[in-house]
């Protein structure tokens, strides 16, 4: 079995020897992992920051509509409900999935990885954890949909009598996506790779 002797560089994908210390990738020279505990703190800090921004993004409006001098503001959930009421069910579901469900799912997956790495598990469970981590990396950027939609609407609906602008919620939301991605990237790959088996 050669499972724990090797580690994959998360930056360039190169195979390196695994050591219980700081490793610099032999190809790209990036730091693969500092001390595991230090990395955990970084991942936790990023996650907590992301959660705070997620709460702010849901409280404050993401979209401000100024129509003939009358201003209305939409939060993320408010926008989803409005779309649902208008009968745009698929779009309401897409926005709900990308802006509400995906970030929450990602929070829980990172939380699961950060809180479960010390528990002894059988090989297959650890492989599942690696798959979960891979999944969080793939779905994370899709939360950006709502930010892009707001940016597009703010650009094309920008007239004298009707105007759409981004709200404070948009800034909080984009920062939430950013910090969630950083949190996932800060997780030391050694925390989740130990179950991988050699072939």
């Amino acid at each position: 079995m050669m499972e724990n002797r090797y580690i994959r560089c998360p930056y360039c994908g190169s195979v390196n020897y695994n050591k219980d210390e700081v490793i610099y990738c032999r190809n790209c020279h990036n730091k693969i992992g500092s001390k595991v505990e230090a990395n955990l703190h970084t991942a936790w800090a990023m996650l907590v920051t992301a959660v705070i921004f997620y709460i702010i993004a849901n409280i404050y409006p993401i979209l401000v509509i100024d129509k003939f001098g009358v201003t209305s503001q939409n939060t993320i959930i408010g926008g989803v409900i409005a779309l649902w009421d208008e009968g745009s069910y698929p779009i309401a579901l897409i926005i709900f999935f990308a802006s509400v469900f995906v970030p929450l799912l990602k929070f829980f997956l990172i939380l699961y990885i950060l809180t479960n790495y010390k528990k002894p598990k059988k090989g297959s469970k650890k492989v599942d954890q690696a798959k979960l981590y891979h999944f969080t990396e793939i779905i994370g950027p899709w939360s950006m949909i709502d930010v892009f939609v707001v940016s597009i609407l703010a650009t094309v609906v920008h007239f004298g009598n009707i105007k759409i602008t981004a709200g404070i919620g948009a800034t909080a939301f984009v920062l939430m996506v950013f910090f969630t991605m950083l949190s996932a990237m800060s997780i030391d790959i050694r925390l989740i790779k130990e179950g991988a088996s050699g072939n």
Binding site: M2, G13, V127, A130, K131, H134, G195, A196, N199
Partner: peptide, 8 residues
């Protein structure tokens, strides 16, 4: 190493 499950 597999990027998904880290098998060597």
């Amino acid at each position: 190493i597999c990027s998904k499950c880290h098998t060597v």
